[in-house]
Amino acid sequence: MSYEEVEHGKARTDVEFSLADYRFRYVPGVVGESKRVVHQAVFTDGPSVWSLCRNKFDIVEVEEVGRCGMPCMQCAARAAAAATKPVLNAGPQVIEGSDVQ
């Protein structure tokens, strides 16, 4: 089951999902230190937790962390994109010293 299946309502109906709002990373020894980046959790289905970067992690392999550690760049990029929405078609813009609008 992928994140897209869950996001678009095509997920299994026998699994109960709940929202999760915490940061986590792999516990020491599961992966190398360079892979222990901090992910932003989106939701959990019990034995697994899904991150903002659309990856699924086993809950027993991760630990909750506060606001410390190297962030997952994909999670950070998705969080930034969700927080800032560009204003499109903001109206006419005048370039000073030009008749171009």
Rank of each mutant, 00 (worst) to 15 (best):
S48K: 03
Y26C: 04
V94L: 12
R25G: 06
F57Y: 14
H8F: 15
E96L: 13
E16V: 15
K85R: 12
G32I: 04
N89Y: 07
G91R: 07
A77Y: 06
Y22H: 13
T84Y: 10
E33I: 11
N89P: 00
L52G: 01
G97F: 08
T13S: 14
K85W: 01
G97W: 05
V15K: 14
F43Y: 11
W50H: 15
R54G: 00
P86N: 04
S2K: 11
V30D: 00
A83S: 15
W50V: 04
N55L: 14
G46N: 04
E63M: 15
H39A: 07
S51F: 03
P92Q: 11
N89R: 05
R78A: 11
A83N: 05
G9I: 07
R12M: 09
S34F: 13
G29W: 07
F57G: 00
K56L: 05
E4R: 12
R67T: 11
A79S: 11
G9Q: 06
R54I: 03
V6H: 10
G66F: 08
A80L: 10
D14R: 05
A76C: 00
F57P: 01
N89W: 02
T13C: 05
L88Q: 04
A20L: 07
K10G: 15
V62A: 03
V27F: 00
H39Q: 04
F57E: 00
V37F: 01
Q101D: 00
